[in-house]
Design a protein around this nucleic acid. Structure first.
Length: 399
RNA sequence: GGUGGGUUACUCAAGUGGCCAACGAGGGCGGAUUGUAAAUCCGCUGACUACGUCUUCGAAGGUUCGAAUCCUUCACCCACCA
């Protein structure tokens, strides 16, 4: 049992520090029924969770299966500083109101994956606010500047003359202090969090805790472009609250190479199954597109259900394979004689009439499935389906 | 506090008086091809019913027939010195 648990826990991880400690915790759970805590921190800056977050959440869910209690830490205090990780500029400071607003939808989405009964939501503002100036100083004395500059992100920024705010130095310390306060047994995070995660161990020792947290790091999920990490600001993400057809479509649009990465990090399939599938694709027994379709179905099903996922697939096929018009498209009413470019702008298909003109010239615009080339066209009364490119549709009623 | 350097479009980055709506690269968008994959090729990438007009090169003024380019002030950033 323990062995199987460890295998599942280890799946897809980038690195585990102190695996022995994890083994002990799991063993203790099976022998004596004693649970342990797994901490993961979340930044309440982006109210929308995407698949990149779910890699972590799925790992937490795995721990919940094997006796872990999740400490779902909302970094409402640390968010006011802004973690330097991954960004090459100091982050904007959020207001308290923003943070509170974000948290509600945040946790709601997280429980699509996590077991709520085995999750404790904690806010680090609760204890960090009370730390006070002397507490801060005591905390800061645990770390030298040289050590801080070892952190990859800092050293790069320092070398390239990108500014580093002194407050940013506090971030890893505060995150580490969270682990002291919560007496976490395990902390998980992305590989980009390594420095911060290790800080937790160091501080737990410095503050005299008997045990130090084990650390488990998950790889960073690449976004749709396959290069940069999935993030909302880069626009290369699949959000968990997106409509089924969008989730399905976006998964299908990833590259074949990236598909395997997604299989490994997001699918419930066993690693053996995935290896087999990969082999079948390589030997052309299975078409890569079929493999991708199944992945898309699985992921869509996770956030909705099988029925809706299947519908999404059918819709997708009818629109893109059979080149039919989507079943649901936005509708607009317009005045008689409206200029086509204006209509495209009003329907939100184009950002400007200039862009509309360019697209018409480039054969990207069609009315009722027929390409048009006249950018001076005016629409007579009637109903039209306007389309730009492959993906943008609108129904327009001209009165 | 002192000295020097910097701020150009989504990003990086050229341009140091007219040839500048502003080179180039990346990204994005579109077309061909396809499996809405990758790769490849081609085109577009400030706005405006548009062979012309308008607004843009950190901000505000100024010099000039003419400014992203020169001058003044301000804001922000960086380095070195203290």
């Amino acid at each position: 049992m323990v062995k199987q648990a460890l295998e599942e826990i280890g799946r897809g991880t980038a690195e585990i520090i102190d695996i022995e400690a994890i083994e002990k915790l799991v063993t203790k759970y099976y022998d004596d029924g004693i649970t342990y805590t797994v901490k993961a921190g979340f930044d309440p800056t982006a109210p929308d969770l995407h698949l990149g977050h779910t890699v972590l959440l799925q790992k937490l869910a795995t721990f919940q299966k094997f006796g872990g209690r999740v400490q779902f830490l909302i970094g409402d205090f640390t968010a006011m500083i802004g973690d330097p990780t991954g960004k090459s500029a100091t982050r904007k400071v959020l207001t308290k109101e923003d943070i509170i607003k974000n948290i509600t939808s945040y946790t709601e989405q997280a429980f699509k994956i996590l077991d709520e009964s085995k999750t404790t939501i904690v806010y680090n503002n609760d204890w960090l606010e009370k730390l006070g100036a002397d507490g801060m100083l005591q905390l800061a004395s645990n770390l030298t500047v040289a050590r801080m500059l070892e952190r990859d992100d800092f050293s790069k920024r320092y070398a390239s003359n990108t500014p580093i705010a002194v407050s940013e130095f506090m971030y890893p310390l505060l995150q580490g202090y969270d682990s002291v306060h919560l007496k976490s047994d395990i902390e998980i995070g992305g590989t980009d969090q390594k420095f911060n995660l290790l800080m937790g161990r160091q501080l737990q020792k410095a503050y005299g805790l008997k045990k130090q947290q084990a650390v488990l790091m998950m790889p960073i999920l690449e976004g749709l472009d396959g290069v940069q990490k999935m993030s909302k600001s880069l626009g290369n993400y699949i959000g968990v609250t997106e409509e089924p057809k969008n989730i399905y479509g976006k998964v299908l649009s990833i590259s074949d190479e990236l598909m395997w990465r997604y299989y490994e990090l997001l699918s419930e399939k066993s690693l053996a199954e995935i290896a087999q599938l990969k082999e079948d694709v390589a030997s052309r027994t299975v078409h890569p597109k079929t493999a991708k379709e199944n992945l898309a179905l699985e992921i869509t099903t996770r956030f909705y259900n099988e029925e809706l996922a299947t519908l999404a697939k059918e819709e997708f096929n009818s629109v893109f394979k059979a080149k039919k018009i989507p079943t649901e498209i936005p509708e607009f009413e317009m005045e008689n004689g409206i200029w086509i470019c204006q209509a495209l702008l009003d329907a939100g298909l184009e950002p400007s009439t200039s862009q509309a003109r360019r697209d018409i010239k480039q054969n990207a615009v069609s009315i009722d499935q027929k390409k048009i080339s006249d950018d001076k066209l005016n629409l007579e009364s009637g109903e039209y389906i306007l389309q730009v490119g492959k993906k943008r549709f609108a129904k327009v009623k001209v009165n």
